[in-house]
Design a protein around this nucleic acid. Structure first.
Length: 102
DNA sequence: GTTTTGACTGTAC
DNA sequence: GGTACAGCCAAAA
């Protein structure tokens, strides 16, 4: 059949399923992808994201509720989240409130 | 096939 | 509460 072992493909599917106005952590995505310890790789995959993907990668943040990126990418992600109704408190997001739950 | 890298997380101080 | 170090995993060179 298909390639269920394709971690990268799995991550895309998971992130694509995140509803607007909600956020999730890399660790959460990694766990859903089948490897709870591969949170790092989740970011690594998104960094090499294909341009044709309309994937809402901006809804993925670290476990501190903060954006792990820096520089322009950081601001871009923050703006994207603000545009979706996410409220930043002291530069952080309330995962208890916006944390994505299945 | 081996080595290097990294948008993370957990534990320790 | 914040900072520092180590571990883990998958993809790219």
């Amino acid at each position: 059949m298909s390639d269920p072992d394709n971690f990268r493909q799995r991550v895309f599917q998971i992130i694509a399923a995140i509803p607007t106005g909600q956020v999730t952590t890399y660790g959460n995505v990694a766990q859903l992808a089948g490897s709870p310890r591969a949170a790092r790789q989740v970011g690594g995959v998104l960094k090499k994201l294909p341009e044709g993907s309309t994937l809402p990668w901006h809804r993925v943040i670290n476990r501190h509720g903060e954006i792990s990126l820096q520089g322009e990418d950081f601001k871009r992600q923050r703006q994207a989240l603000l545009a979706e109704g996410i409220v930043f408190k002291k530069g952080k997001v309330d995962l208890e409130k916006y944390g994505w739950k299945w």
